[in-house]
Amino acid sequence: MRSVVKTWLAFGLAFFLAGCGQENVKTHPETQITGSTMGTYYSIKVADDAISDKTKFQADIDQLLELVNDQMSTYRPESELSRFNQARTSTPVVVSRDTARVVTESLHLGRETRGALDVTVGPLVNLWGFGPDAKPTKVPSDELISQTRQKTGLGNLHVITSADADTLQKDIPDLYVDLSSIAKGFGVDKVAEYLEAKGSRNYLVEIGGELRINGVNGKGHPWRVAIEKPTANVGSVQEVIQVGDNGVATSGDYRNYYEMDGQRFSHTIDPATGKPIHHRLVSVTVVHPSCMTADGLATALTVMGPEKGMAYATEKGLAIFMVTKTDEGFDERYSPAFKPFLTRDAK
């Protein structure tokens, strides 16, 4: 591999962009832009003639992603989502069609995964120090966790759509919605939709490790990406995949965690317990036509853990790749639907 892959560029939680693995002359120049959004970076490559003005392209993408932040960021007090979270009544709050779309998909995935994905766990995320609030100085008590759980629940959140307006409604005043498990994937999809509206059919869009891929790269070969090995050595590759025209998302807790009182706390909260997950699944990668859906599913499967998560994915025909920590190192498993995306001979 090292003789044919020209460069590995470190990008975010789970992925690297890779060369196609063949020494062919470029068939089309690639337009690439990079920038910052959602507390991370973005990188976009376009390998056709859809983009004629790179400066305008960058400005359009920045504006598009800034709008997503203004809609769904919990770190911006004036965002649509923050205004809804700050409301203390059951009066519907008008939101954009995009915000309604993301919350609707969140509720759908929450039902499909039997509550493993729950975007109302925001109060618990904040309680454990992984939201806008500061990290706690001591481990929250069971009583405090129980009290906080009373402020959550997908059944307390509703999306109401009509020809005139889209609104969100809550049944309890303290309900707090956190879309961080799905909004980044939505942002990727929005950029892909923009590119396709421009006529592009060959592109790779990434925001902080979540991707949408379509067509071929500048050499005329399918895009390849690499799943990062979950170790401290940034740049170590677990697996190279070729996913065709799909979205890809990874969830993992090997970087976003803290330790306190001799315990390790993951940023992923189990809605069933109100506590950070505690199992040996360190990362799960999902391939799906929608990056938004892949993003939400990756979180849900992480909550489920290795056995329940793999059983669920196999039952539903989902393409997933799991890395689990063992006493000897790391073990990888994948669902039957994921096998076609591997670039090596599957064992």
Rank of each mutant, 00 (worst) to 15 (best):
R2Y: 14
L9I: 15
G12Y: 11
E23H: 13
V25T: 04
K26H: 13
T31F: 02
T31L: 02
Q32L: 10
G35T: 12
M38R: 08
M38K: 13
S43M: 14
A47M: 11
D49N: 09
I51K: 01
Q58D: 11
A59T: 03
A59F: 00
D60C: 11
I61R: 04
I61C: 10
Q63P: 00
L65T: 04
V68A: 11
N69S: 12
D70S: 13
Q71Y: 14
E78I: 13
S82R: 04
R88T: 13
T89F: 05
T91P: 01
S96V: 15
T99S: 14
V102T: 00
V103C: 06
S106W: 02
L109H: 04
T113P: 04
A116T: 05
L117W: 01
L117Q: 01
L117Y: 03
D118P: 12
V119C: 15
V119R: 08
V121Y: 01
L124S: 07
G131I: 05
D133K: 11
A134H: 09
A134D: 12
V139N: 09
E143L: 09
T161N: 10
D164P: 00
T167S: 09
K170I: 09
D171G: 06
D171Q: 15
P173S: 14
Y176R: 07
D178K: 02
D178I: 05
S180Q: 15
S180L: 15
G185M: 06
G187A: 14
G187W: 02
K190D: 02
V191H: 03
E193T: 09
K198N: 12
G199R: 06
V205N: 03
G208Y: 04
G209V: 08
G209E: 10
L211C: 14
G220L: 09
H221Y: 13
R224P: 01
V225W: 11
E228S: 08
P230R: 04
P230A: 10
P230N: 06
Q238D: 10
V240P: 00
Q242C: 11
Q242T: 08
R255G: 05
E259Y: 00
Q263W: 09
Q263N: 11
R264E: 05
T268K: 00
I269P: 03
I269H: 05
P271R: 10
P271F: 13
A272M: 14
G274E: 02
H279L: 12
V282M: 07
S283P: 05
V284R: 05
P289N: 11
M292L: 12
A294Y: 02
D295Q: 01
G296I: 06
L301G: 00
T302Q: 07
T314V: 10
A319R: 08
T326K: 01
T326M: 05
E328D: 15
F330H: 11
F330M: 08
Y334P: 03
A337Q: 12
K339F: 00
K339W: 00
P340C: 11
A346Y: 12
